[in-house]
Amino acid sequence: MVPYLLIAPVVIYYSIFWLFPVLNAIIESFRNVDGIWTVSNYIHIFKDPVFYQALSNTAFIVIFSVTIEFILAFGLALLINTKFRGSSMFLFLAMIPMSLPAVAVGAMWSSGLATRGWLNSFLMTFGFIDDASKILFLAGGKMSTMLLIIIIDAWTVIPFVMIILLAGLQGIGEDVREAGAIFGGTKFQILRKITIPMLKPTITTAMILRIISAIQIWLIIVLLYGFNRLPVLLEQVVLNYDQLGAEYFERIGLALSVLVAIIVSAAAVLYLKVSGSFEKEVKQDE
């Protein structure tokens, strides 16, 4: 009884503000402009080569960015958790990128990566390059474009992952690890045998939240390159639903949203299965 009571407010909240729009979106994605039931919106998407590009680009970005971000964020969290002198200030510093608004992130990188931006100006001022050898950051091919996006995205969201992990590490407490050290464990053994298993729920949370938002990456791409130059899933949703200004495309945007939701949930379930979070929970509870 108690757990259901605790969860009731969430359920009520979501049924008022969220459920209706979602059901409506799903229903409307199966109707055409004249209100007739159809799957034509989905057929349009599956026939469009841009959708498959978006799918593969998104997959590439997600796999690499989530991996890189997790490794770096975990390292950073462990580092800060050693509580060296000034670690608190360092944490503050590490959190800044996350708190910047989109307008700042866009202005920062577009003015930095432009041919006559601050990055080239910096390199030139310190004599690393000259005018003839300036770097065309934004003129690269598809692969380098995606790498650039991954780097920028990592810069922005590493703190997000790091803080969840750090918060989890705080709960473990020094004494547990000290105990491990007393029994002669090396630092790496303690990390592998004690810290990571105890941190498992937190890692799962950080990863799953990150995977969900990584699949929905779009804004930084549009800020730098505009729509349709490096198609990714959510950018296509925004383009169709929000930007093209016609009901026909709006419905395609809705159908795409449904597909994105399915893809994201599949990825989430897959992650939970592979990482064993599901089974473990049940075992623990029983």
Binding site: A114, R116, L138, A139, G226
Partner: peptide, 19 residues
């Protein structure tokens, strides 16, 4: 065309900077 012309959403900035 400038090599980064595909990222110009507005010609003002590159024209002002001399790019």
């Amino acid at each position: 065309y400038s090599p980064t012309v595909m990222t110009y959403d507005n010609v003002t900035a590159p024209m002002k900077s001399g790019e």
